[in-house]
């Protein structure tokens, strides 16, 4: 029951525990507790907010959930810690982290709720049962994915003619139609990559939220599986690697078809062979990106941070780098101070990877992406003037131009939006 007289956002327990009613919010019952090595994860599945605490913190919350008073819960936590602890201060810390906020509107079940913190994500259909989803991520499935990765690597190593080249974008005689279809194809492949993350999350009992985000200056589809921090670290690798599992499987299929066609084993239309070459190009770019853009928080980053048992490595890395180059603001210093020693130790060397990677990315944008953007933009802009409104080429050119502009404006808008969400504690 809320107290309308004060503008606070949490609710209070009433009734038999009246002596603690002002101190212990009822929302403490919404906290989930999960072990993580020597530590424990406390979180709110409905808000998508999670923190790591030592064992006394978990004992304290469990005691409150069992109906203990603040004093009793503090005593239990102190017994676990072997030292005196301040339960009120810890509770204030949980409140400051947003973990005691009111249940989100529409958030009824704490198990089926989506793990998104920004409220604008698309809730996806939950029509596939976890049991069905597990078919795609059992041992036989992973054997298939690993086999596909090995097969694709062997074909690329031994058949130079099948290696991707940027010229493979132009798979049709009409360059404009080639570009439009290549972009559409890339969208389909990217969406299916994300669906595989969602499916793997489903098999682990973790819901997903989808959004459009950015990595550096590039737009991305993003699947948020935040609730995965409540399952053990080993079980997190599957969902992290699921997108690339899809990529390598399609890649192996496309390469096998091209190899068979090239050897004269099968007959397919030459245009289909060229389309498969475009598929190979898009997939190889995607896979190389996932392992080379670790510093931009790619899927490979999630694997690395999990292997290093980190909690908040990305912010630790950004803040370490900022501190080295031009120092931190008071707010940033406080945020950095609240990050654990393990994350900060890893960030000391990962910060160098981050800095070199950012310099490399900037260089690549200036050398490759910007010239491509300007030349393609000039080409389609000239088309707009040259073709009539009734021609297909006019509308294809307009579509490409809109896409190019969105690729420049989008990341800037998203950077602003995500900074706002991060400062509100809604998305980390």
């Amino acid at each position: 029951m809320a107290r309308p007289s004060t503008p606070k956002s949490w609710e209070v327990l009433i009734g038999e525990q009246s002596e603690t009613s002002a101190e212990v919010p009822a929302t403490v019952r919404l906290l989930v507790i999960a072990p993580d090595g020597d530590e424990f994860i406390l979180g709110r599945n409905d808000l998508g907010v999670y923190v790591a605490v030592p064992e006394p913190g978990a004992v304290f919350v469990r005691a409150l959930q069992d109906g203990c008073s603040l004093a009793d819960a503090t005593a239990r936590a102190g017994a676990t810690a072997g030292a005196e602890v301040n339960g009120g201060e810890f509770l204030d810390g949980l409140r400051a982290a947003g973990l005691l906020d009111r249940q989100r509107a529409g958030g009824t079940s704490q198990t089926a709720e989506s793990a998104d913190g920004d409220g604008r994500s698309i809730r996806w259909f939950e029509g596939i049962s976890p049991r069905t989803a597990r078919v795609f991520f059992g041992r036989p499935a992973w054997a298939l994915y690993v086999g596909a990765a090995v097969a694709a690597a062997m074909v690329l190593a031994t058949r130079p003619a099948l290696r991707p080249s940027y010229s493979h974008v132009w798979w049709l005689p009409d360059p404009l139609l080639s570009l439009v279809t290549y972009v559409l194809l890339g969208f389909v492949l990217a969406a299916l990559h994300e669906v595989w993350h969602w499916l793997a999350g489903r098999s682990a009992g973790v819901p997903a939220a989808f959004r459009i985000s950015r990595r550096g200056a590039y737009l991305v589809f993003e699947t948020d599986l935040s609730q995965i921090v409540t399952v053990n670290r080993t079980a997190r690798y599957g969902p992290f690697l699921a997108g690339m599992a899809f990529d390598v499987t399609v890649l192996a299929g496309a390469l096998a078809a091209r190899a068979a066609y090239g050897s004269g084993v099968v007959e397919i239309p030459p245009s289909l062979d060229r389309l498969l070459a475009a598929v190979v190009l898009a997939l190889v770019i995607g896979i190389v990106w996932q392992w080379s853009a670790l510093f931009l928080r790619s899927d490979g980053y999630a694997v690395l941070a999990n292997a290093l048992r980190c909690h908040n490595l990305f912010r630790a890395t950004v803040l370490t780098t900022k501190w080295r180059i031009w120092g931190l603001s008071g707010e940033e210093a406080a945020e950095f101070g609240a990050i654990g020693p393990r994350d900060r130790a890893v960030a000391r060397w990962f910060g160098l990877v981050y800095l070199l990677g950012m310099i490399g990315t900037l260089w690549a944008i200036l050398i490759f992406a910007l010239p491509f953007l300007l030349s393609t933009g000039a080409w389609v802009s000239a088309n707009l003037a040259a073709y009539s409104l009734s021609s297909v080429a006019f509308w294809e050119s307009l579509a490409v131009l809109v896409y190019l502009v969105a690729g420049v404006v989008g990341p800037a808008v998203i950077a602003w939006r995500e900074r706002r969400l991060r400062r509100a504690g809604a998305l980390l």
């Binding site: 810890f90 949980l94 985000s213 928080r297 909690h311 609240a338 980390l428």
Partner: peptide, 18 residues
Amino acid sequence: MKIEIRRVESARLTANFP
């Protein structure tokens, strides 16, 4: 002793736009 609270980052997995 103070019970430290460490924020945990989201698991955010991506695929680039073409």
